[in-house]
Simulated assay, not measured.
Amino acid sequence: MICYRLRCAAGHEFEGWYRDSATFAQLQAGGFLSCPECGHAGVQQALMAPAIAKKRSEGPAPRQCPEVPAENAGEKPVSPVLPDQMVAAFQKIRQAVETGCENVGDRFAEEALRMHHKEAPERGIYGQASEEDRSMLAEEGVDVLSIPWVRRADG
Rank of each mutant, 00 (worst) to 15 (best):
E140I: 01
H117P: 00
D143T: 12
E102H: 08
A112F: 02
S135G: 09
Y126P: 03
K118N: 12
H117A: 02
R123Q: 14
R107L: 06
L137Q: 02
F108D: 03
K92Q: 13
L145P: 00
G100K: 13
R94Q: 12
G100E: 06
I147E: 10
L113N: 02
G100R: 12
C101Q: 14
E119I: 00
E102I: 09
H117C: 00
A112W: 06
A109W: 10
L137C: 03
R134W: 02
D133Y: 07
T99D: 14
Q95E: 13
A129H: 11
G141Y: 13
L137F: 13
D133M: 05
D143F: 06
M136H: 15
I147N: 06
M115Q: 15
F108C: 02
N103Q: 08
V97K: 07
A138V: 00
M136N: 14
A120N: 02
R114P: 00
Q128N: 05
N103S: 05
S135W: 07
M115I: 09
A109F: 06
S135N: 13
C101S: 15
V142R: 14
V142H: 12
A109H: 09
K118T: 02
C101F: 11
R123E: 07
A120F: 00
R134Y: 01
G124T: 01
E98F: 03
E110N: 04
N103V: 01
R114A: 15
A129Q: 08
G124Q: 05
G124Y: 01
G124A: 07
A120R: 09
K92I: 00
E131M: 12
N103W: 03
M136C: 08
A96E: 10
E139T: 13
E131V: 08
H117N: 10
E132T: 11
E111D: 11
A109C: 09
V144P: 05
I93Y: 05
G141H: 07
Y126M: 04
Q95G: 07
L113V: 00
R134Q: 10
S146Y: 00
G124K: 07
V144Y: 06
E140P: 00
A120Q: 04
E131Y: 04
D133C: 08
A96W: 08
D106K: 12
E139N: 14
P121E: 07
G127A: 01
E131Q: 12
V104K: 08
Q95N: 04
A138Q: 15
A112K: 02
P121Q: 01
A138C: 04
D143C: 04
E110V: 07
A96T: 09
L113F: 10
L113M: 15
K118R: 11
R134F: 03
F108N: 04
V97T: 11
G127Y: 02
E111F: 01
T99G: 02
E132H: 10
E111T: 11
T99R: 15
R94I: 02
A120V: 00
Q95H: 14
A96S: 15
E132A: 15
E122V: 04
A112R: 06
D106P: 03
L145Y: 12
E110P: 00
S130A: 13
D106F: 10
H117V: 00
L137M: 14
I93C: 03
G100Q: 12
G105A: 09
I125W: 11
C101Y: 10
R134N: 06
A138R: 15
I125T: 09
V142I: 06
E98Q: 15
S135T: 14
V97N: 05
M115E: 05
A129S: 11
G105P: 10
E102C: 05
R107S: 15
E110Y: 09
D106C: 08
E98G: 05
G105Q: 08
